[in-house]
């Protein structure tokens, strides 16, 4: 563990004339979990492909496990495990055969791989599934098997591209728990996600990527403190404008446009819900309490608030 697991310096990647990654730099410390957040099309997957040496950067430098990419990518990947966005397990094989065949790609001996298979399957919560065909496994089981496959070479660094997309809550929690166990063993983890709770739970540090640039970086707490007010009040429901006049009604959005600015520094309207961001929410809460029909939720600001503030609320396709 002499060299840092991954160092990315001023990475640029164009597809044709279109810049996808526009000058990003970050580095991973051994044993940390670093999460790349970003809306669809932000350049997360392209960044990961560059970090694995699967595509040549337009400019910039990447060192993976002390090896320069893409020149020494193959050697660097010996110490890396990858969980791709799409499952690409071998459908013709059993769970055990998937691990055996994948281990061979790392130049491992059959006997050594076979000796690891029971512990890998048990780590992934797949005891007794060694001889199960892939088609008989659920989505969550396939994901866990893909994780086990990424661990077949006992890597120092694990790279996961949206590891829990499409999983039910039970399956997501199990993946999180396994990743925490790996971090506790000293593995370094780089993951991409667009689930903020996932990043907040797992990551030592996060980076928000948008339009090919890193627009925020730090621990989840730092990023929240730096970029957004500490308190959020979500206001929704029907608004009866004045207690006496019940005929004049509107939405929470109408209420916000008329009143929010006098209580908070910043507010946003999304559909019929108003988001108020405040340092001192007491006056706002007192006002809301007196309104008829409006309902509200007062909570601390989280990463999702930061993410939406920095990357906007419009849909990304």
């Amino acid at each position: 563990m002499s060299s840092p697991p991954l160092v990315v310096t001023d990475l640029h990647k164009n597809f044709g004339d279109t810049p996808i990654v526009r000058g990003i730099s970050f580095s991973l410390a051994p044993g940390e979990c670093y999460a790349l957040l970003g809306p669809n099309g932000a350049g997360k997957t392209t960044t990961l492909r560059c970090c694995l040496g699967l595509t040549e950067p337009t400019s910039g430098h990447i060192m993976l496990g002390g090896e320069p990419l893409p020149r020494r990518a193959r050697e660097a990947r010996l110490r890396v495990g990858v969980v791709p966005q799409m499952d690409n397990l071998d459908p013709d094989f059993t769970a055990g055969e998937n691990l055996l065949v994948y281990g061979r790609y790392f130049g491992m001996k059959d006997a050594d791989i076979r000796a690891r298979i029971p512990q890998l399957l048990s780590f992934a919560g797949l005891e007794g599934k060694e001889n199960s065909r892939i088609q008989t496994l659920s989505g969550g089981m396939k994901r866990r098997l893909t994780l086990a496959r990424a661990l077949v070479n006992d890597p120092d660094l694990l790279i996961l591209d949206e590891p829990t997309t499409g999983l039910d809550p039970q399956a997501r929690h199990l993946i999180w728990e396994r990743l925490k166990a790996l971090l506790a063993r000293g593995k370094t983890v780089l993951l991409t996600t667009h689930f903020m709770d996932e990043a907040e739970r797992l990551a030592t540090r996060i980076a928000i990527l948008d339009a090919g640039k890193l627009i925020a970086q730090g621990t989840p707490r730092e990023v929240i403190q730096t970029h957004i007010e500490p308190d959020v009040v979500e206001v929704f429901g029907d608004w009866q404008n004045g207690a006496a006049d019940t005929s004049a009604t509107g939405t929470a959005a109408d209420w916000a446009r008329a009143n929010a600015a006098q209580f908070v520094e910043r507010f946003e309207v999304s559909g019929e819900t108003a988001f108020c961001y405040a340092h001192e929410p007491a006056a706002l809460l007192a006002h809301l309490h007196a309104q008829h029909g409006l309902r509200y939720l007062h909570r601390p600001a989280n990463l999702e608030d930061v993410f939406l503030k920095l990357t906007g609320r419009e849909l990304r396709d």
């Binding site: 694995l52 699967l54 990518a73 193959r74 050697e75 990947r77 010996l78 990858v82 791709p84 799409m86 690409n88 397990l89 071998d90 459908p91 994948y102 790609y105 790392f106 130049g107 496959r149």
Partner: peptide
């Protein structure tokens, strides 16, 4: 279709 090559490219194969 199966993206088997993608899986191999994530391993130390060129």
């Amino acid at each position: 279709v199966q993206k088997t090559w993608d899986a191999m490219l994530n391993a130390p194969l060129s």
